[in-house]
Design a protein around this nucleic acid. Structure first.
Length: 825
RNA sequence: GCGGGUGUGGUGAAAUUGGUAGACACGCCAGACUUAGGAUCUGGUGCCGCAAGGUUUAAGAGUUCGAGUCUCUUCACCCGCACCA
């Protein structure tokens, strides 16, 4: 311990307790204001690169600064990593724990449409409010590193990165059917569609053909799965990402299309299958209604009218209708057949909307005996079902388990592995197919037909095509527009800013038009953690030195809802920067954890419409930031949902107030053996439990320790000092205040974390349970690590044991040292 | 359908990973005290029973000297994904 000027030389604290005029009442308001001001004035949490220390980069997802202000859910994550950051600092790490704002997005724009207030203005106000709220809770953020993604100095680099994507061919413009939210009037990425609805407003998503900027995330699909091995993500995050990327291994096979007589039509229909080995069971093929061969061969179909009608109906269906109704519909393409390249047999070809145009090749070979969807379709159209895998009964449903191959020519008798290899080899040898890996993941639709986002730094020239704007002209700032409303055609409000739109081509100098779509709000958040490393750099997005020192993020906590959005996007984005040599590692985050949501007391989600939102300001005002923080940690297991309870909160308040008043009993006395045992137990438990994110039980340990001290007539100063240190990550204001009152003139946040001694924490007597035939019959208290004989004898002497034994002979006695004695009779 | 998870008192939850189930809190009950304070303090509190005792971790079976924990079966709930061939 250091700097204990007042404390030194005093036998008790009585004298100077008078000086401090200890108030009976725990006045959290004055304590918290006082320390928040001191921390801010003295920049206690400012960090710089310090190569003499090991760094620790803790990160929480930065909030969208909504007009509603902070939600009580936000501080759950922020407090957790604040606790970890503060502990790491005390353990000697150089800790970077930053905070900023993900400030582009629709609510600010919708607010502008309603009120006419420029999004930049309302966003700035909201950021000020969020900052005030965050500061009132006493987080140890380095505020000097704060920024918002809508700052031009920041989005300059977002735009610059987009240009790098473009230069490497990973940003491209494509016309395709995308998900369109008719309510937000904006195109959405696949990840933003939940159950066929817009994740933001819930409106049903429709398909719309639009020219869109795309980012080729699918090029990284393999690495996004494989590199999960290198990082320490909790299982549910890992498996959700793997599932979303959806890698499947199979083969692409060519089926020649013929007329009814078997004459070749010169079209090779490529199908994708994960089971090329079941090809002898193919009894028909299906193409998606949008498949290009359908239009190209229309005149060959005897039932062209019927086919045309089906295509039109399928196009009208929304994604939701198409996927929710799983009864099979379709139309046979009469007049054509597909030739099975393995067997040479001709099978009918259908179109059906159960085959998706965007996955695989948009065409399948159907094996109804071994695929339930194909089976259902075959039943509707009365098609033959040929079993090629032994073992199942296909009279009621498809046999989707494995079995040895039958009716399969050269594959007969083979198991799945063998037959797969044989089928692919046969296809390769005969030049009609090859192994192929497919993904569910689609490229990232990157254009948004809105205003409040980063302008896409591209211009279109009649002669030169799309051109990135020169990098020295970045940032390309958002222009002022008179009207923020998007229109139904799908044009961005920027399209109305004609002065801005019309520009010159950077290549030929001729007339050109700017891209008027903006980037999605996921753009700015894809690399913000890099900017924290060097936030004021105007030459680079961050210096190599800063990135080398701080990256990667050691511990990142955030919501599960971002697993297939922000978390996936930013990993992809970072890998691209890595491939370009701009960042030192290929994975941005080492450890990823996730917190559970906080629900209202009745288990419902907190929402304005339900009127059950708890405002953090009220809690800070009524109970204090320290109680609020501690309660958020005590509320329940960190990774599970928790329900807000004002009563529990009050219990935590009582504990905090108890710590305050306990100070009156603190004296400079030597701790007893028992005192030290309680202290070291607490140190060990709290240390371990913080690391494991078992915050609720870490708080329990602290409570047990305080209960122990409460029973003492005089609390030794050493015990109280250790309590303050252990408590300081949770309740930093109170810890700092009492630390000062003890006479230390240092910041407790700069003190070292106490070291627990397992030897001193050990009990010297233990109470063992005594069982008779596995049933608890009593307990014995004996010396720790006593000989088994001692335990046996004590156990056999127990009244209850004697009575229950009733003279029966003892067969054997099992003694687990310091745990239990079990007498078997 | 696939993937992940959860199930323990009136409530939120613990349980050293196979060894005294219910720590720590909330609530409740009884009492004390008071400069009526967000009071505080003391004792009690899984269930049945006056007690001895019995019984108890969603239900059932199994392994074991011993199971909340391991295995199997069943049920319930939550969260993702979903006609991805």
């Amino acid at each position: 311990m250091s700097g204990n000027a007042r404390y030194n030389g005093k036998e008790s604290f009585d004298d100077w307790q008078k000086e401090w005029e200890i108030e009976d009442r725990y006045n959290f308001k004055s304590i918290e204001h006082k320390w928040q001001k001191i921390w801010e004035d003295e920049k206690v949490y400012k960090v710089e690169i310090d190569k003499s220390k090991e760094k620790f980069y803790a990160l929480v997802e930065f909030p969208y600064p909504s007009g509603a202000g902070l939600h009580v859910g936000h501080p759950r994550s922020y407090t957790a990593l604040d606790v970890i950051s503060r502990k790491k600092r005390m353990q000697g790490y150089n800790v970077l724990y930053p905070m900023g704002f993900d400030a582009f997005g629709l609510p600010a724009e919708n607010y502008a449409i309603k009120t006419g207030v420029h999004p930049a203005v309302s966003t700035r106000e909201n950021i000020a409010n969020f900052t005030r709220q965050l500061k009132s809770i006493g987080f140890s953020f380095d505020w000097d590193r704060s920024f918002a993604t809508c700052d031009p100095e920041y989005y300059k680099w977002t735009q610059w990165m987009f240009i790098q994507f473009y230069k490497h061919g990973l940003a491209y413009k494509d016309k395709m059917a995308i998900n369109w939210c008719p309510s937000c009037k904006v195109g959405l990425a696949n990840e933003e569609v939940v159950n066929g609805c817009c994740e933001r407003c819930g409106a049903e998503v429709v398909r719309k053909d639009k020219e869109q900027w795309m980012l080729a995330i699918t090029k990284y699909a393999d690495r996004l799965i494989d590199d999960l091995k290198e990082v320490d993500f909790i299982d549910r995050v890992r498996s959700t990402q793997i599932n979303w990327i959806g890698r499947s291994e199979g083969a692409e096979l060519e089926f020649d299309l013929t007329d009814n007589s078997g004459a070749d039509l010169g079209k090779k229909m490529v199908v994708y299958t994960t089971r090329p080995d079941t090809t002898f069971g193919v009894t028909y093929c299906v193409m998606a209604p949008e498949h290009k061969f359908v239009a190209e061969l229309m005149e060959k179909f005897e039932n062209a009218d019927e086919v045309q009608k089906y295509i039109e109906e399928a196009a009208k269906k929304s994604e939701l209708q198409r996927t929710s109704d799983t009864t099979k519909t379709g139309v046979e393409l009469k007049g054509i057949k597909a030739k099975n390249p393995y067997t040479g047999s001709l099978v009918p070809v259908f179109i059906s909307d159960y085959v998706l145009t965007g996955y695989g090749t948009g065409a399948i070979m159907a094996v109804p005996a071994h695929d339930q969807r194909d089976y259902d379709f075959a039943k509707v159209f009365n098609l033959p079902i040929i079993q090629v895998l032994a073992g199942g009964d296909i009279s009621e449903k498809a046999w989707e388990e494995d079995g040895l191959h039958i009716n399969s020519g050269f594959m007969n008798g083979m198991d799945k592995k063998e037959a797969m290899a044989a089928a692919i080899k046969y296809a390769e040898d005969n030049g009609f197919g090859h192994a192929k890996v497919n993904f569910k993941l689609r490229d990232w639709v990157f254009s948004r037909q809105r205003y409040w986002g980063e302008p896409i730094p591209m211009v279109y020239c009649e002669h030169c095509g799309w051109q990135p704007i020169p990098e020295d002209q970045l940032p390309l700032k958002l222009p002022e527009v008179p009207d923020y409303r998007p229109n139904d055609n799908g044009d961005s409000p920027l399209a109305n800013a004609t002065d801005w739109v019309n520009t010159t081509c950077p290549k030929c100098g001729g007339h050109a038009r700017r891209e008027t779509d903006v980037m999605p709000n996921w753009a700015g958040s894809s690399w913000y953690f890099l900017r924290y490393c060097d936030p004021h750099n105007d030459k680079e997005f961050a210096s190599k030195e800063a990135l080398d020192y701080w990256m990667n993020v050691d511990w990142y906590n955030g919501g599960m809802e971002h697993t297939t959005l922000h978390l996936l996007y930013s990993r992809f984005w970072h890998k691209f920067l890595y491939d370009c040599g701009y960042v030192p590692q290929s994975e941005p985050y080492h450890k990823r954890t996730s917190h559970g949501m906080i629900l209202a007391a009745n288990g419902e989600k907190m929402s304005k419409s339900r009127g059950n939102v708890v405002n953090p300001d009220d809690i800070v005002n009524n109970y204090g930031a320290d109680t609020f923080r501690l309660y958020e940690m005590f509320i329940g297991p960190f990774d599970q949902v928790a329900m807000w309870s004002e009563e529990s909160l009050n219990g935590v308040y009582r504990f905090v107030a108890k710590v305050y008043s306990l100070f009156k009993k603190v004296y400079k006395t030597e701790p007893s053996e028992n005192d030290l045992r309680a202290m070291h137990k607490c140190i060990l438990e709290v240390t371990e439990r913080i690391d494991q994110m078992k915050f609720n039980t870490a708080v329990s340990s602290l409570m047990t320790y305080v209960n122990y001290m409460s029973d003492l007539p005089k609390v030794p100063a050493e015990l109280y000092a250790v309590l303050l240190k252990l408590l300081s990550p949770f309740t930093p204001h109170l810890a700092e205040e009492m630390w000062a009152r003890m006479g230390y003139n240092t910041f407790i946040v700069a003190e070292s974390w106490p070291k627990g001694d397992a030897k001193l924490a050990e009990d010297n007597v233990v109470t063992l349970g005594v069982q008779l035939n596995g049933k608890m019959r009593g307990t014995i208290t004996i010396a720790k690590n006593a000989d088994n004989k001692v335990a046996e004898e004590a156990a056999l002497k127990l009244d209850n044991v004697v009575r229950q034994l009733n003279g029966k002979p003892v067969k054997k006695i099992i003694v687990v040292p310091n745990r239990i004695v079990n007498i078997v009779a």
